[in-house]
Design a binder for these strands. Structure first.
Lengths: 201, 201, 201, 201
DNA sequence: TATGAATGAGGCTTCATTCAT
DNA sequence: CATGAATGAAGCCTCATTCAT
């Protein structure tokens, strides 16, 4: 509420934005604090006024990226009401988010990789899975509504959500590897249709 | 006159096996040469008798992992002839490979992440995409046969292969993140069936 | 707002002074960065704030030593006007510089050795010869003046300069090897006289 | 006497010849044992059958080079009897030795540099000065004979020898630095004459 | 005797973090 | 608050030397 806190939060964001820029260029695993400082237009020491460690910046950046994604999806989904359209919109809007800024995709997968169980069992990014869980829950809910409304076949909503996200992630992944061109809207559409073909009555 | 004779290729493999063990524990991005040496039961300097740099060990290990996967899939696929069974077998055998050694999955995704475009545009693992391409080609061929034989609907075989792999990867990915239990054979089966439901006539 | 302010140039010099001390003790070819750091009273990493590599410190130190020599010679030569006295003064003052700090001589020759064509043709210290060239030019000019003024015989001034420096270096060299005692001013004088005996009319 | 010993000596020489080749290319301070082994056409371990350490190879090589120089000078000096001619011959033949194989000069100066007081006071090549002393003694003797025979002025023979060698070394040194072209026989002759001008009656 | 595979001590360099200003 | 100079832990890699064959 006080300006001080607002300013502080704003600066934190600026730093995290700088970090995301750096990640896009150098990867999450090979970035230097000085790069973040430069990208954010602050001094190296200043980073430690807002974050207590390098790791905290990584975590914060990931959270910010997921918030960006959420902010991108929210208005898109708000405009549609039918479950099938919501699923389609979720699918396409997700692609769109990454198509808008191709490097975001690389960063996301870097975060995922950083979130894998490591350091002798402890994942670096503990809430990576948490972010994913939210997406699953949201989609499962939408699908359940579709089932309830009779639009979808009476399948296990969570399984369906998982497999839809699996395909979405898989395609994004392929795109990150340069295997497919998701920018070409046709491809996601075709695939979504194939998937819905199995889902719809 | 008769100096020590060693099987250089064998030793290289031993080192790479050691590296894979370390990767499973520490991740591809945070391993130390000394760890690989210890895991391989050799001295630090010995690594450089067989590989000229840390990076070369990463690349070699990835290649080995993919060879392992191929070696796992080959006999499994040799036993089935019908395209639909081949697709199923490919799907299940792939899961099985990673279920046998859960950490392999983490390592694979680490490799993938390492293969993303980085270092200002240059991916660390240049042929990562190449390995993926082979899988796509193989599956596309199988699917095409199924289409030719009339078992599958007349769709774009490459698109189908891509989406199948996308789903496979996505599920493996979810498993790596701890979202799904692929060890429970039911889940992959269900999902495969959903997918095939859209594929089969 | 007001970060620590340091005189970067001054600190660079301090480090180079430390390096020269180390060179005197261990030779240019067998010194460690940690030794320079300790001699300069800074941390190991600090060296790299001011120099980007070990080699750069070697080059910088050599330059500093030559500057020291020049600074030593300049006032000494400013007090004399007659060419023959300038030559004598150059000769003696040079000895003096190294007599003042015997180890300087070892360091100088180490630098020379480092400046020899190496690393498959490329000398480590590229401008080593440049420093020498300046000395030749200066002496040649002085001798030429002596010739013009009729004090010296009409010989090739450059040849004379080269041979004078050759003898000077040769004597310093012998001194470095412990063959002669240049500290005993008599010897340089005698030799200089012998040389001048051939130069003067 | 026994063939065994002869063979052993021969092999040692081959190794030292290899070392000298390497020194010419890489310098005394930056050579690797493997390079010597390759240049000598033997295995790395074999070096240690003939020499107990790297340092011993350096010392042996230097000794060999000085022996080569001596072997080159001996017959040249055997043909002249007058002291003044012996001095001239010594001067010219020395140049010739290094002109024949330009890189020898670099190696010699490298040896000299290695022979400077180091490792906290202890020179690496202890008998470097010893070799120089022999040259001084020889020349002093020749000059003394010239004085006795009345050819030279009655000066201090040792001083004269030292200054002659100083000039010789100085010129060689300049040549090594690329300052003078000793290959052009004129220059050494001129300088020798200047020197002798001061020496002769 | 000859070899080169194996080794590990040691050095240069990087970079996250601290802290005086 | 902001800064960047200072630091030293840590890691990759080199290479002299050893030793099994």
């Amino acid at each position: 509420m006080t300006p001080r806190i607002v300013d502080k939060e704003k600066k934190k964001q600026e730093i995290l934005r700088g970090a995301l820029k750096v990640f896009a260029r150098r990867g999450v695993h090979d970035f230097k604090m000085i790069q973040v400082a430069q990208a954010a237009g602050v001094g190296k020491g200043t980073l430690y006024e807002y974050f207590s460690s390098k790791e905290e910046i990584v975590v914060g950046s990931m959270t910010l990226l997921l918030e960006d994604l959420e902010a991108h999806l929210k208005p898109r989904l708000a405009n549609v009401v039918k479950p099938v359209d919501q699923v389609r919109e979720y699918f396409f809007a997700s692609f769109e988010f990454f198509v808008l800024q191709k490097r975001r995709l690389d960063v996301l997968f870097d975060f995922y990789a950083a979130g894998l169980p490591r350091k002798d069992g402890v994942p670096l990014l503990q809430n990576m899975a948490g972010g994913y869980q939210q997406a699953v829950d949201f989609l499962a809910e939408v699908i359940q509504k579709g089932i309830d409304s009779g639009d979808f076949r009476p399948i296990d909503a969570r399984i369906a959500a998982l497999s839809l996200l699996a395909m979405l992630d898989g395609l994004l992944f392929q795109s990150a590897l340069g295997m497919t061109a998701i920018a070409d809207r046709k491809l996601p559409e075709k695939i979504c249709d194939v998937y819905l073909g199995g889902l719809l009555k």
